[in-house]
Nucleic acid binder design. Structure first.
Lengths: 140, 140
DNA sequence: AAAATCACTTGCAAATTAAAAGTAATTATC
DNA sequence: GATAATTACTTTTAATTTGCAAGTGATTTT
């Protein structure tokens, strides 16, 4: 994979140079919303990413400073993946994607309900969740 | 291209089933921020999309109800592409991507300045721009 | 009538993805 | 303490997608 390609100076284009595929943002989603943190965790997600693709995406996200690899506290056989501040800051992007999907695609009632709650005070949710994530990933 | 794949019920995943590549959101960007509306316009963008890729993405976006093809008022040789409401509603997503890129990647001073303005009142900007786009694409 | 423009399509090589099997280190089990 | 699981990958190979270049056919301009 050529991760270094910077196709233009456009902010959207530059962001897509990193995340413009079907998998990278799902890893971020798992880290932010599902408390997943290991290679095995990510493999278990519903979308069933292939092992080699997962490895290449984790490497790419690490190279781009979005995630970090750490020793797992429970076992030397495990690796702990955490979000950097750069990664945590993707929360607003993922939230707006959620809102768009809720409005324009068919989404499960449970998630709809959750999003309706979040929508009541976006800024507050972002602040609270960001703080939570920073605390969670900071100790490490 | 298989556009029908719905990998899971997750809103993020479903959105990526449509936009999870390096090009689709750039077309939306061009429609929202650059006033582009023809095949030739999109080809001229800095990222230099290949002609066959552009054609396949335009088809995919149309099939997904994000854009529409119309007769061009100026010429029968041209085709006018416009955003649907579903497409216009991607504005908040693109804005948050902009903000993320501005914070974490190197972005030109001019764009930084523009974004700083937008940030002062996000909601207002979104409302104004949305209204503008709806008016623009509604007459057609 | 001829040349240019416009929106594509086609053909092919190169790159990426996906599926499956394999590996090495560590940990749990008998 | 040996054996089987688990964990995080890597490797291999086939299928799909991308990217480049060269068409094509319908308009439009010269």
């Amino acid at each position: 994979m050529n991760n270094k390609a910077n196709r233009s100076g456009c902010p959207i284009s530059s962001m897509l140079d990193i995340f413009g595929d079907k998998w990278s943002l799902l890893i971020i989603r798992d880290l932010i919303f599902s408390g997943k943190s290991t290679y095995g965790d990510f493999l278990k997600s519903d979308e069933k990413i292939a092992t080699n693709i997962l490895a290449s995406r984790l490497l790419s996200l690490e190279e781009n400073g979005v995630i970090k690899k750490l020793e797992h506290p429970d076992s030397k056989a495990k690796v702990l993946y955490i979000l950097t501040d750069k990664g945590i800051d993707l929360l607003p992007v993922l939230l707006e994607i959620h809102f768009w999907s809720e409005k324009h695609l068919s989404i499960s009632p449970e998630i709809q309900l959750l999003l309706k709650e979040v929508k009541k005070d976006k800024e507050k949710f972002i602040k609270t969740k960001t703080k939570e994530l920073k605390a969670m990933f900071d100790v490490k």
